[in-house]
Design a protein around this nucleic acid. Structure first.
Lengths: 143, 143
DNA sequence: CTAGAAGCTAGAGCGCTATCTAGGTCAAGC
DNA sequence: GCTTGACCTAGATAGCGCTCTAGCTTCTAG
């Protein structure tokens, strides 16, 4: 299992494109440099794949590449800066929490509209309030 | 209260920039055309502001402008297409739900790392697993 | 031996969502 | 009259995160 993976295999495993993999590497998002075969081809390890999975989690929770790079830099520098890494992670954690919070609010507004529309469609009456439920409870204007 | 609002006032109220307001209008995101004063200046109503607030909810939950435009088109067309509006809203609702789901997963991974780091920092040991907790529980490699 | 698949680099291009610029109009106050 | 500030349009530019292209090498199978 210490076989070493080609870029194609890693692409398949992670769901990233080979383009994206090379791009991430160029951008310095990888914790340690990808090794190469004698012919110059990239050889990835399982650890690389794990790191990439981590990056994917970061990305899909909205961490900008720039921040991932900073994190990778810290890791590359080796032990001694764990406080910084922790700070970065905590800050992103907060960010994600806030995002979820915001999405939940949006969802409630949207679900409210959905309910509205489906009720009125079921009843035959065809109009629906459009205000957010919690704000100025307006009682005109259809959408 | 039926005063009519200037673009600047609407910007202030909604948090959108005046640029964005004009942009949204050009892009056809508004349910009904903004009226103008004799001198060409935009006059917004409270309903416009509500619609914009709705758009902001859509946007901040990841609905592309294109979809908002479609929705606005439907509303502009008037009664008769409520099924379509409902379908659009439902689909976005699903989308947002999925997004929240995904963010929650990311958050759990990130929080796990945060816990890891803070524990090990507190204890003085300075390394930390980096794998996602649920997947192949790897026990090497520090990050 | 040859074809085809996979890899390489450097760099251009794209989709989205604004945001800003240039070059003006208009109304109010000093 | 002149300045100030809010507003107007059309279009250029920007930032992000890829994604693709061009042109080339290398490995593998038939």
């Amino acid at each position: 299992m210490t076989t070493g993976l080609s870029i194609g295999q890693v692409a398949e495993r992670t769901g990233l494109s080979v383009h994206a993999l090379r791009f991430y590497e160029r951008e310095g998002l990888l914790a340690d440099p990808v090794r190469r075969e004698s012919n110059g081809r990239r050889v990835y390890t399982e650890d690389d794949v794990e790191w990439l999975d981590m990056c994917i989690k970061f990305r899909s929770s909205g961490m900008p590449l720039d921040t991932i790079r900073k994190y990778a830099d810290l890791v590359r520098q080796g032990p001694g800066n764990e406080q910084d890494r922790l700070a970065l992670l905590r800050s992103h954690e907060d960010h994600v929490t806030a995002q979820i919070q915001e999405l939940a609010e949006c969802l409630s507004v949207i679900s409210h509209k959905v309910d509205c529309y489906s009720q009125h469609l079921a009843a035959g009456t065809a109009d629906c309030l459009w205000g957010a439920p919690s704000t100025t409870t307006n009682t005109s204007a259809a959408s």
